[in-house]
Nucleic acid binder design. Sequence first.
DNA 1: AATGAATGAGCCTTCATTCAT
DNA 2: GATGAATGAAGGCTCATTCAT
Lengths: 225, 225, 225, 225
Amino acid sequence: MMTIRKDGLQTQKKLLKVAAEVFAEKGYRDTTVAEICQRSGSNVAAINYHFGGKDSLYAAVWKKAFEEALAVYPPEGHLPADAPPAARLRALIHSHLHRILDHGRLGHAGQILLRELSCPTEVIHQVRRDLISPLQKLTRGIIMELLGPQASEQQIGFCEMSVIHQCLAIGFREGKLPAFLPKGRPIAEIIDALADHITRFSLAGIAVVQAKIEAGGNREMKSQI
Amino acid sequence: MMTIRKDGLQTQKKLLKVAAEVFAEKGYRDTTVAEICQRSGSNVAAINYHFGGKDSLYAAVWKKAFEEALAVYPPEGHLPADAPPAARLRALIHSHLHRILDHGRLGHAGQILLRELSCPTEVIHQVRRDLISPLQKLTRGIIMELLGPQASEQQIGFCEMSVIHQCLAIGFREGKLPAFLPKGRPIAEIIDALADHITRFSLAGIAVVQAKIEAGGNREMKSQI
Amino acid sequence: MMTIRKDGLQTQKKLLKVAAEVFAEKGYRDTTVAEICQRSGSNVAAINYHFGGKDSLYAAVWKKAFEEALAVYPPEGHLPADAPPAARLRALIHSHLHRILDHGRLGHAGQILLRELSCPTEVIHQVRRDLISPLQKLTRGIIMELLGPQASEQQIGFCEMSVIHQCLAIGFREGKLPAFLPKGRPIAEIIDALADHITRFSLAGIAVVQAKIEAGGNREMKSQI
Amino acid sequence: MMTIRKDGLQTQKKLLKVAAEVFAEKGYRDTTVAEICQRSGSNVAAINYHFGGKDSLYAAVWKKAFEEALAVYPPEGHLPADAPPAARLRALIHSHLHRILDHGRLGHAGQILLRELSCPTEVIHQVRRDLISPLQKLTRGIIMELLGPQASEQQIGFCEMSVIHQCLAIGFREGKLPAFLPKGRPIAEIIDALADHITRFSLAGIAVVQAKIEAGGNREMKSQI
DNA sequence: AATGAATGAGCCTTCATTCAT
DNA sequence: GATGAATGAAGGCTCATTCAT
């Protein structure tokens, strides 16, 4: 049977793109290689041929999605490294939200990331460490700056959690935005408003923790460790 | 094979309990009825006999888990309805965390809930609405009290999100607690510490939003709603 | 649990009645004991308890249906044994049709019979012989009378087939009567009309075979046997 | 296990052939895909791959069997359209019988057809209409010619039934020919003899109905139609 | 390089039957 | 006598993967 000999690289790219969509839509387990191939106009064997298997394809999709997300929205925006920590926190949050909500430009990085966080797949554990940890480190650094050198590990950890979780959990409802957000506005505007809120909210939270530290009462649970 | 002919209700309970564990551990898709039955010491057909199928079992597990969680940890603890909103917020957060983290007593309500939020299953959509909405309403009420009557829908929504997401996303990593938390302490103590932090952090965040409202600057994006 | 202790015999009868309905409706294989028991208001184990198994129940249903059919519509009606053969043929045909078409009074003898003829079940082979053979013998006898002593085995067989098949195949369409029959008339009237036609048609057919015999040409295929 | 990678079409054909045999032998419900695949030397998944499921395979088998039957034995044989109706009736009957009895050449068209008529399967209802109706129309046309323009709907219908039922019911006993037929003769010869009988028998039957019409007594049940 | 036919392990479900009560 | 919980064999189907071409 005569078949059109595509570029090979093109097939691979198409596969990767479609796979990102389907994985994001249905999750790893509910996605079938058959569907990906069909939607890509490829053969059922294409995935095994090009990627070696469903697992590897998933890893590839994930890696690519995350890297792209980082490329388009660098963790601290385009701020100079010596910008004030509050500004850098805002940039970080802003970039987080973009990754999670801006599907149009990023494929489905955010959704896949979110899914991974709550339903981790065996295959991805390593990738996860490699890519997420740096981000956490950045956040942590900024928070440490804000809390000052007296902060305990636990206090830093708590604040880090508070900030990151506010960003991550946004994507919970399959990308459907909460009802109280204005419909029909460009996504960038919504992200801006969200980032403003989370930054303001978090800075206040961090400030109150820091105030407590300054007050000298920093001994909570410490004696118990 | 020797089998004890139990009361039937006992088998059903065992099945429900084991199913909760396995579903929480592996998610709906990766859970096999075979494993549940095996771990329960029942026959493969037991699930279909008692529940009608994997789907219905899942729904049953979910419902039970959530109801139990609510029963053991009522949303506002045991506070009187006229307690100050800050105290009620603390109780609410505390109860949330209990539901999510206290596996020992609750089966796996928290994990299952969390999984559902990020990887929703068809079967569960209705239950989801029935059980989660009331909780959101409570949270919302408290936040409205704290922000005052001037607060916009959006401001209320944002604060609600900040609070709830800090609680929900805790359970992300399959129940493994973050490294910075002291190991070996009773879970109740850890939950207390977490609840303290989230409450303090959130009250500060809410306060800063409320301050902004009082300052009269409450016009953000309002014209567009 | 308190249960109403029925007569035992009553349960058995109900079971037999319902089973006849379901078997006739769905056939042996597609009928489940569960459905029969449910429709009978009995326990799943009732069939095994009262009849020993699905097989035996089926046999019992069949036997009863056929016997009832014979009781209500004796093969040759109520004609004296020395009535002219044409009249006895008419009575035979009439009784056949009744058994097959008159569901109201006979349970579903006809449908079950028909099903058995085309989709024979292992269990029933013996019963089949015991009950159907006598009927065939009767038909055969009448036809032999009509054809005269010169008739060959084959000619008798052919005519017998022609007559019986016209009656049996009536029930093909799940009891739905052909469109050309008048709707809304009592079934007895329709059966009368059908019996009239088949009798007239068959007598003519038999006559022409008999004429051929008389003409002396009775050697067809005989040399080949 | 060594497997020959055939053309795919070959496997499909084999599957279709074997399926026809098994379905004819055991009926839809009692046939297992496992058996079909085993007998075909294929994998259990082959049926789903090539046909989509047991249902579709059954439909395919049925369609093919019937079409082949029609192709090999055209309804009116190879008679010119203006042949006398008696000759065309004979050809029609002859072709019917061939379809039902000649397993060797036709797969199992006849048996499957017969089974369908008495134990209709959901899947097949449409196909049934498409393929059987034309045949009935042909038969009807010939009978109308023979009866003349005065014949009532009911008279036509009755005669049609008589003719067709004599042919169809032949196949009742799983293809085992009645005992009175000569054993060991080629099937074609037997079919010829049967066709001769049924034609002669039916022409006589039709003639007597037609005589009744001519005699002017054509009023039976007419007022009720 | 790429295809699509073929595979087999595994899953959920159905169902007649058994058994303790 | 009668129940309903429990069983296990079997069936149809899905799906990632392999293999010959």
